[in-house]
Amino acid sequence: MALVTGIPAPLTPVSAARLLVLRNFIVYRSAWKLFLTGFLEPLLYLFSIGIGVGQLIDGFEFHGEQVPYATFVAPAMLATSAFNGALLDSTFNVFFKLKYEKLYDQMLATPLSTGDIARGEITWGLMRGSVYSAAFLLVMVAMGLVESWWALLALPATVLIAFAFSAVCMALTTWMKSWQDFDKITLAQMPLFLFSATFFPVEAFGNGVLRWIVEATPLFRGVVLCRELTTGVVTWESAVSVVYLVVMGIVGLLVVRRRLDTLLLT
């Protein structure tokens, strides 16, 4: 039998993350249809509400500029597609791999570390969200819902949104005990989706605590970032969003790593 001669060079964090992505890619290569669902949802909302309901509404004022309703809703759905895509893999799939497949235990029998697993899985979630967003952005361009060259930056913005949600949701998933616990995720997902200034301006919440709370939620930060970029009305709010999402993602990543240490290296 041929032997593996010599000791292979240690994996760098980047090549380790790439291997986890490769593993997930091979799995989805034969189940690519599952990939479509996460993309369709925001698209259907755009057609039904953005275009459909949009015919009854003139549009909204966004940072003092009048914006047609569909153009107002589309960037929110763009942010949502990154959010949805990131959520799909970092919640149910991670739970399945962690609890039932014992996939991470298998990986830890190799030179891979918990940090590699955290980075690899979050990268995968991020990529899935980004692919959805990229496709959605193309749809927006085709439909004339993009009003500025700033929109080129909307793609990295969605990568950031996917990163932040992928990391935090994977971290939360490490505390899940059973499938029922995922109701809590769904419970958080719906209001985040509906009230993050997705379908109406944040001014609707008045000027009180409620608006302050909404502005502090992560999907709102993503929505406002995408909306500023695709409409071209860019303000300091985008900078706040970027910092917010970067910090959220890094904290999530660190927590995931610590939790995997606690759960798997016993």
Binding site: A9, L19, T110
Partner: peptide, 8 residues
């Protein structure tokens, strides 16, 4: 894939 995890 398992082999690739070893950097082979």
């Amino acid at each position: 894939i398992y082999g690739r995890y070893f950097g082979i």
